[in-house]
Structure formats: C-alpha cells, structure tokens
Amino acid sequence: MSRSLHDDPPRESSPASATVTGDINPRPGVEPAVDAVDAVNCATGGGRPVAAHRTAAHRTIGTMGRSRLAAVARVALRYRVFLLIIAADAVIWAVRPSAGTAVFERTLSNFAEMAAVLPPIFLLIGLLDVWVPRETLMRFLGDRSGLLGVAISIVLGAAAAGPLYAAFPVAAIMMRKGAKFSNVIVFLGSWSTLKIPMALFEASALGARFAITRWIASVLGVAAMAVIIDRAVTKDEKRAIYTRHEV
C-alpha cells in the first residue's frame, strides 16, 4: 500500500485486478526498462565466450551488477513504508520480545485474512465481468435505475461478508460496467456497515436492539452520505474516476 502515496493517478488506467495485485506483487509492467536491461545482460553476459569478448563481457557484468542494485533499490523504495514498519516492529521485538511477537502474529493474521478474502472476491469479479452484460447492469444500477438501483446497491453490499477493502475491486467493476456513481457510493457504504452476516454477529454480542438500531440509523446515513458525495463531486471528477477503471 506504500506505493499509492507517491503514485501518479494518470497511470492508474489499468484494470481493477492489476491495481490491487500491484500492492502485493510488483507489477510486471512497471519497470520495463530495468527488466529488459536485466534480460539482455543475462543473455549476453552469460552466453558469450569470455575470452573472445573480454572487455565487452566485463562491461556487461558491470552494468548487470549496477542494474540489479538499482532494481533492488527500486523495490525497496516502493515498499519503503512497509520496510520501515517491519524495521520498527523488529526494534519493538528487540526491546520487548512479548509485545514484538504479538505484533508479528497480528501482522501475519492480517496477511492470512487478506490472502483468504481476495481470491474469492476476484473470482466473483471475474464471474460478474463475464456473466453480467453491461446492458443488464446499467438497467439495474445505471443512471436511470432510480430508487430500485439504490435498493439493489444496498442489498449487494449488505449481502457481502468481508473487509471493506475487498469491496473496492467490486466497486471498480461496477463502474466499468456503467453503474451510477451514487449507487457505487451506496454500495461501498452498505458493504462497510450494513453487512447482514456481521449484523447477526453484532446482535449476538451486543444485543438485537443495539444491532437493529445501528442498522436502521446506518441505512439512512449511507443514503445521505451518497447524496452529499454525489453532489460534491463534479462531472469531470466522476469521469476521471471512471476512466481509471476502464479496460
């Protein structure tokens, strides 16, 4: 997630899946220059007879070392926030081993959760992409979907079970297929706080009265927030967001 802080928006026109995996795995397309140089170096440096092209080989090995270093430096720079946090965690671990162990366990469990949540989400997105035609989605969630569109957005979000960040790629595919901006915001709000599976759990822990009151109050809030955000964001800004998610 560290990349995004210094990332320039215009480059984010890649499809949703690429945008997310970019956080976890280095995107193959980001550093074509370095990869190409590396590939060439490996091919030339490794394959040539050393005696015949001694100077050339030396030069290639030299640049290969440098470009490797540069590649490592780039990766380190991209994940600098993550690396800094890990370093801080290591310091905590050195000073207070018990607290440090807890921190690492927590980090690991977060990674495990993400690894468990994201594959089914991407599967869902893939199915949505292939099985739901643009026309159908636009009819139910598009510009003229009206109150039905709002209701469907709430139901879609509430039926979900998963952390909010899993909703982002789903929202992206909704936008790509022509869902209305305000409906996407309703969907996000619904996913964040109206999840039915979570509400059941909430009711068992904090009481049905608590959960139902919070759910009803939140529905109104989700709708109100969508109206406010929809009005605050200009047409051009919306178009810019939508173009991010075009294929």
Partner: peptide
Amino acid sequence: TAPLEIRYFG
C-alpha cells in the same frame, strides 16, 4: 486502507 481507496476513487 485509505491509500488503497484513494487509488480506486481518488
């Protein structure tokens, strides 16, 4: 998750 959200929605 705000940095991720910014990448999706600005």
